[in-house]
Amino acid sequence: MNPAFSVILLTTLTGAGQGLFLALFGSELAHALKLSAPMPGHDFYVLGALISLALSGAGLVASFFHLGRPERAWRSAAMWRTSWLSREVIVLPAFMATTALYALSHAMSWPITLATGAIGAALALALFVCTGMIYACLKFLQEWASPLTVINYLVLGCASGLTLASAYAALSAAELMTMMTSLAIALTVLGLATRSASLLRNARLRPRSSLQTAIGVHHPRIAQRSQGLMGGSFNTREFFHHRTLQFLRSVKWTFLLLAFVLPVLLLAAGAMTASPPLLWLAFAVQYVGLLAERWYFFAQANHPQNLYYQTIS
């Protein structure tokens, strides 16, 4: 597939926003359950929820650039019974609204923070599932059609949000920093495991379709002589990344390094020296790594329609 920057930004930005929200609510819940977690003041939660809101809002804005007819976007909530995209379109604003309410209830010291937080957390998790299922439900895109796709969206989003929460806590709630950084490290390591699992799975995939089944001619040697176009078409633009295999491979190693290895080192160093700049750097590096990860996620998917365009694939 040809990775679209609007979708890469949408999924990485909202993923970090959801992860941050889960981190905030998690710390509040841990305190409420008397799990020896300290509870910083309301301000920490207000600003944190606003940062999460800003991230998902930015993701929402980015998503509009993916649409050919953004003015009709409101129609996309219609088919929630069958379409995961439609479900995402409903859950994302609901999550943003709940995040806003969470910030407000903390700002006003209303006693509903835990309840709103629980709803927001459920919506954040549901949003991860919707986003992942948009890709995982396309069964003939074999690289995506796996539970690992959903797991990766969930784990990588949480890792990115927790890294952000660590950096944020280091600035404004130092008592939470150790908990956040250890969780961020744990999730980043888990993300390395689940993402590597999907890389290994995809490396061993056998495509179910072939040029033979695509045109129904069962001869081992078929060469394409004409693609039915001269200067390209939607099909040659949308479904090919137009990069070399070498470039693809270097993106893979880049994201493994930037999204997982470096952030873990920076998080550990930041926690040990209690240095906010190092933790913010960890978030920035990991975010860039996740951009590369998402680019690779799209580029690696090999659509069966490419069989009809042998010269480009």
Partner: peptide
């Protein structure tokens, strides 16, 4: 149609 292209991804 909002031009989201999702259907084209879903057509093999």
């Amino acid at each position: 149609c909002i031009g989201c292209k999702y259907c084209s991804w879903a057509c093999p």
